[in-house]
Design a protein around this nucleic acid. Sequence first.
DNA 1: TGTGTGATTGACTGATCAGTCATTTTTTGA
DNA 2: TCAAAAAATGACTGATCAGTCAATCACACA
Lengths: 187, 187
Amino acid sequence: MKDKQTHLIDTAINLFARDGVSVSTARIASEAGVSNGTLFNYFPTKQQLIDSVYLSIKEDIARNVLPSLGQDMSVKEVMFGIWRGYIQWALANPLHHEVSILLKAAMVLSAATLERADAIFELKVAKLRKGVEQHQLVDLPVDYICELSTAQLSVAVAFLQRFKLDSVDASKHIHCSFDVFWNGINA
Amino acid sequence: MKDKQTHLIDTAINLFARDGVSVSTARIASEAGVSNGTLFNYFPTKQQLIDSVYLSIKEDIARNVLPSLGQDMSVKEVMFGIWRGYIQWALANPLHHEVSILLKAAMVLSAATLERADAIFELKVAKLRKGVEQHQLVDLPVDYICELSTAQLSVAVAFLQRFKLDSVDASKHIHCSFDVFWNGINA
DNA sequence: TGTGTGATTGACTGATCAGTCATTTTTTGA
DNA sequence: TCAAAAAATGACTGATCAGTCAATCACACA
C-alpha cells in the first residue's frame, strides 16, 4: 500500500477535481479509506492539505518537464521543451492539471506555498530574462511573458482535452499553439 | 437609494473580491444594509445571487465594449476595439474584473449562466470565424482563438494593475500586448 | 508471551451557514 | 385617514464541517 500521506493527497486531487476545494475533509478521509482523525494526523489543518496537494502537483510537473532541459539550449528550445513537456504531462494527468489551475484561481493557497512553487521553475525565468536582455524577445517584463506562457499553455491543454485528437494531430497542435505563443513574443 | 437588487449585487462583488465566493449571505446582506431575509427575497438561493453577479458583470463589459464596434470593421479592428475597451473597463472596475475571473475559475456558475454570458459577445465570435475562413488568421478553431484572447487579456490586465503605469505607458502596453496577441494569430 | 509505543479510530463539539417564516414596518391608493 | 398589499425583518432550524481526544489497535522488541 502506497504511503498514506501520498494516498491522501491523491484522493484529495480526485475529489477537488470532481467537486471543488469545498469537499469536506471527512469525505477525503473516507474515500482514502482512513478515518478523519488519521487525515488530521498527517495534515494538521485542511489548509496544509491544500498546500501539500498544490506543491505535490508542481513537483510532479517539474519532474516531468525539467529533466529534458539544459542550460546550453536556446530560449526557444527551452520554451518549446516546457511547452511539449507540460502538455504531455497535462494530457496524461488531466485531473492534476485541472486542480493546479483550480487552486491557483480560487486563491486558497498560502503565500509561502505560491512562492515555493515559483522557485521550482527558476530555469524558465532565467532563460526568458536572458532572451529579453539579448533582444531575442519583445521588450516586456519577464513576469509578463511567464504569465503569458502559463495562460496560453492552459488554453492549449483545454483545447486538446476537449477534442481528443489522435497523437499525430495532438503533436501538430503542440507545435501550432507554440508557434502562436512564440510569434507573439519573438522580437 | 439605488435599486436594492443592484446594490446587493454590488456588495456581493466587493465581498467576493475580498474574501472569495465563500462569504456568507448574512455578511453580504449586512454589508448591504438589509436583513438576510431581504436578500433571499431578491435572490431565492445563493446560487442565483452568484449567477446574477456574473451576468451583471458581463453585461457591464458589453455595455462598455460593444458600442464602439461595427459590422463594417475588419477583424483586427474589432479585436483591437475589444482589447482596448476591455482593458480600460477592467482598469476602471478592477474588482468586477477580478470577480468575473474568480467565478469562472471556481466553477461555481450554472451552465445556463455560462451560456447566456457567451451569447452576449456573439459579434466577436462571428468576426473571428470570418477571419479564419478568409485565411486572415491562423487555421485554428474559433473557440480556441476566443479562449486565447480572453486569457491574454487577463494577463495584460493583471500586468497593468500590478505596475500602475501612467496613461501614456498604459496605452503603450495596450498596443504592445495586442501586438503579441495579434502576431500570434495573424496568418 | 507480555509490554510499551506510536498509529488509528470515530464519536463528539462548537462554529458556521443557507434558507424559512411568523411578525412588523412601509407603501399604496381609495 | 385607513385598510390592504407589499416589503423587510431577524430569530430560528437543520445541516454541514474542521478539528479534538479518549479509547483502541498493531506491532516491535524483550
